[in-house]
Write a protein that binds this DNA or RNA. Sequence first.
DNA 1: GCAATTTTTCACCGGTTTTTCACCGCTCGA
DNA 2: TCGAGCGGTGAAAAACCGGTGAAAAATTGC
Lengths: 232, 232
Amino acid sequence: MSQRILVVDDDPGIVAAISPALRAQGYDVAIASDGEAALHLFQQYAPDLILLDLVMPALNGIAVCQQIRQHSATPIIVVSVKGAEADIVTALDNGADDYLVKPFRLSELLARIRAVLRRGQTTQARIYCADLVIDTNRRVVLREGKLVNLTPIEYAVLAELVAHRDGVVTARQIVQRVWGPQYLDSTDYVKGVIRRLRTKLEPDPSHPRYIITEPYVGYRFNDSATIQESAE
Amino acid sequence: MSQRILVVDDDPGIVAAISPALRAQGYDVAIASDGEAALHLFQQYAPDLILLDLVMPALNGIAVCQQIRQHSATPIIVVSVKGAEADIVTALDNGADDYLVKPFRLSELLARIRAVLRRGQTTQARIYCADLVIDTNRRVVLREGKLVNLTPIEYAVLAELVAHRDGVVTARQIVQRVWGPQYLDSTDYVKGVIRRLRTKLEPDPSHPRYIITEPYVGYRFNDSATIQESAE
DNA sequence: GCAATTTTTCACCGGTTTTTCACCGCTCGA
DNA sequence: TCGAGCGGTGAAAAACCGGTGAAAAATTGC
């Protein structure tokens, strides 16, 4: 389901320039040409982000900002020809999340949209993998719904593997990030921790599903939950 | 309790211009003059926001962004002389939350800081948790409807725990925020205060419900009033 | 200035974690 | 075929962490 953007601008030229570009990026776009319509559409359309012009008939941009902020935290990017310091400060202090002065570069607008939307995301905190749930926000790991007790080093190593899941992480990389650069040659640590992680996480520790050894390379966290039944 | 900003810039002139202004606004300011120092201070100082220059010795701004984003969602505002479209897009797509081109207007920077910090806030004045009521506005704590007498330090530590309820707070973080960065290694303080808090708040201080120890990690304020009857 | 409270300091205990080391089997390449 | 290097295993030693108690030092209120 694509994200929805409400474009509020009374200049048809601007709208005609922006909306196709947004649609091309995969966003759903709705358009309002004055403040009243903006508030109405905000209710109806429930956008994920609002692109808001300041100078408008019916209700100006600042007023729209304030109204919306009374009930909602939906991100707002103000786009305006007014580039004066006071305008920018006023808009930001009245609830705008970002401010872009016209004329602007399209790719910058798109980047700022991405940045603002990213911020709103509840940082992809949870990773599901077969019967494993890793909640990086609360720093907990669940196996079959039950909490697994991980020590700090165990968790740090697991986090490192998960952060690069699908890619291989070398023992040196793990030591580097978990113990620090000065321990670069003591890759023995990793062996021990990997073992403990496997006994705690793997259904069958001697035939790991999640923490896979890539011989002579490193370890890999197996995200694709497809279980590989190796015929041995 | 003021919010902390980490200023990362290798130009002493810029730093000299910005930091006093930030301090005048009531922010706590730490300064790093290269990327390595920035990452180190990020760990130590745990800032609420980062002002990041792009051009730096040791490790450039984009790299710093990426490193920080691997583990954290702390807001980053990039401040740079580079105003090219590509620079802006690159920075925003690598985790920056906002981008400001030097030279900038100070009041605009401050407004953008406010806008970005506003996002992260979840101000909730009153926290109810079983028979505990914590009113952060009036700075009082009630237990079974009765006022609990907390000393300033006790309250500050509790507030710190409550602010991150459901998340774990390390002893270092607590010391950092309550006593200040210069006490970073005297985590003994925390033990004492936690003990006193438990005797004052917990129905059964030796089996805490509210202030839970997460071994080898830190303490967690248990918001979900569900009492965990551990079988064993 | 004195008494009560609060904060800091310190040493100890029990439990857990981390580190270290020796050994084993396997694979790769000479 | 053999040796070297890599990864897995096991177990003991060392380090660490959090809780406790108690006393010294600092702060506060009267």
